[in-house]
Each structure stands twice: as C-alpha cells, then as structure tokens.
Design a protein around this nucleic acid. Sequence first.
DNA 1: TGCTTTTATGATTAGATGCTCATAAAGTAT
DNA 2: ATACTTTATGAGCATCTAATCATAAAAGCA
Lengths: 103, 103
Amino acid sequence: MNQRVYEAQAEYLKALSHPTRIRIVNYLREGERCVCEIFPYLGEEQSNVSRHLAALKRAGILSSRKEGVSVYYRVQDDNVFKILELVLSFVKKLVKEKMALLT
Amino acid sequence: MNQRVYEAQAEYLKALSHPTRIRIVNYLREGERCVCEIFPYLGEEQSNVSRHLAALKRAGILSSRKEGVSVYYRVQDDNVFKILELVLSFVKKLVKEKMALLT
DNA sequence: TGCTTTTATGATTAGATGCTCATAAAGTAT
DNA sequence: ATACTTTATGAGCATCTAATCATAAAAGCA
C-alpha cells in the first residue's frame, strides 16, 4: 500500500486521539449541536472547543452549518462510531486483563 | 461515560496515529517478526523503529517475546485490523468525494 | 447606530513527540 | 576474553500540540 494512504489513516486517527474530541463525537451521536451547547456540556473553554471542532472538521469527521450567529456541528460519517466502539471494547478488555493479573 | 475511559481510548488511538506504526501493524498481519526484519522492511532507522514498537507495545497493541538476541513482535488483538480497515474505507471515501468535486 | 451574543483565530507558553547519533545491554560466536 | 549482532535507550534538537487570554468577525437586537 501507498505511503500517502498510511499518512491519511494516521491523520484521521490523530484527529480522533484526544479525550475531548472523542467526547465531542459521542455527544453528537444523537444529532447536531451548536458550539454554544457543546462547550458548556464539555466544561471546556469556548476557544479550546472551537479548535477541537475545527480539527475534527478538517479530518472529515464532522461537518457544520451556520444558522444565524450559531454554528451547528454534526458527525459526517457513521464509521467513526464503529471505530470508537472497537476501541472501547479493546480498552475494556485491557482493563479486565489487568484486573486478572491482580488476582 | 467516565473521563478515564475517554483518556484510555485517546491513548490507544494516539498509539496508532503514525504512518510508521500503521505500517508496522500491517506488516505483522501475517505473523510475528523480529526487529531485524521489521526495520529494514520499513526503511527506517533501527532506533526509531524500536521506539515505535515500544509505543505500540505500551498501548497493548503489540506483544513481544525474546528468542536469543532477537525480539519478536506480534499483534496482540485482532481488533486493530478492523479499526484500520474502517479507517481505510473512510479515507478512500474522502478521496472519492474530493475527486467528485473536481468534475 | 451601538450593544450583545456567538464563533473563530492570533499570540504566547508549556509540554509532548519524533528523529538522529552514540552507546549500553544482552546474547552468540570465535 | 574479544568481537559481533541485535535491541533498547540517553541526549539533543526541531517541530508539533493543546491550553489560555485577548480580540476580531459576523449576526441579531434595542
């Protein structure tokens, strides 16, 4: 496979690899939300959240639409949920294995 | 969901989010390989590859066994292949969409 | 028009990451 | 014991990332 493909995969994964950005994607599971809803939910600074949203959009994970002064973000492709679920199951498995080592 | 879970997911994704590390995982698809096979295949410096392997092992994605002076690495959990396939299909879709915009 | 709300972005800073070179550590062979 | 092979790691460095504060830009409201 091509080096460009690996780079594109890495970029996508990088965009997802931050707790706040994962929380954003999960929050948008039920539908679009404007920034003014997202950042209080996360309990993070508005400017910080805006940058995280921009990163997810740049990667193609989110898209946005403007309505008046508000900007609504939504998940662009449902693949991301499958990916996060697989990662979640892996992480849970790791925890179980660590627990097992303690017994 | 718990903040710790998001952090664990992020760590896992971070470990995967580098072209060289993705190439390593793909290379190990067919079975274990020692470092002395992996780094020439990648065309990267031995010390560099060793660090990437350590990162993947730390995340629980790879495991290793020592045989004489050699260290053999292998993929610890097949979930990683599913994840990379989903990411690949997403990336391919993005490219198609970009192509479509040019016509 | 002037004020307020909503979002994005410039500047700064602290810390993390990735690469390279050199070398250490461990095992094997002569 | 010495030399060689294989892997890991310390040091140094350049670059990237994330967070914060301040502020700009755009839209709506009084």
